[in-house]
Amino acid sequence: MSKIGNQKLCTLLFMCSLNACKYNKACRELYERIVAKEKSEKSALMAVCNKLLKQAFAIAKSGLIYDETCRSTLVKN
Rank of each mutant, 00 (worst) to 15 (best):
M1R: 12
M1N: 11
M1L: 13
M1I: 13
M1K: 11
M1G: 13
K3R: 13
K3P: 04
I4G: 04
G5S: 07
G5D: 09
G5N: 12
N6C: 09
Q7P: 10
Q7T: 07
K8M: 02
K8N: 08
L9N: 06
L9T: 09
L9I: 12
T11K: 13
T11D: 08
L12P: 00
L13I: 01
F14R: 06
M15E: 11
C16S: 08
S17P: 02
N19L: 07
N19D: 05
N19P: 00
A20V: 00
K22Y: 04
Y23S: 07
Y23R: 05
Y23H: 05
K25M: 10
K25E: 11
K25T: 09
C27Q: 00
C27K: 00
C27R: 00
E29N: 12
L30E: 03
Y31P: 02
Y31G: 01
Y31Q: 02
R33N: 10
V35K: 02
K37N: 02
K37Q: 15
S40Y: 03
E41M: 13
K42Y: 14
A44H: 03
L45Q: 06
M46S: 09
A47Y: 05
A47I: 08
V48F: 04
C49F: 02
C49S: 06
K51S: 06
L52G: 04
L52N: 03
L52V: 07
Q55V: 11
A56M: 15
F57C: 08
F57Y: 14
A60V: 05
A60N: 03
K61W: 07
K61D: 09
K61V: 06
S62C: 04
G63C: 02
L64W: 08
Y66H: 14
Y66E: 14
Y66K: 15
Y66V: 14
D67I: 10
D67S: 11
E68V: 06
E68T: 10
E68P: 03
E68D: 08
E68Y: 01
T69C: 14
C70Q: 15
C70D: 13
R71W: 11
S72R: 15
S72C: 03
T73C: 06
L74N: 15
V75N: 14
K76L: 15
N77P: 10
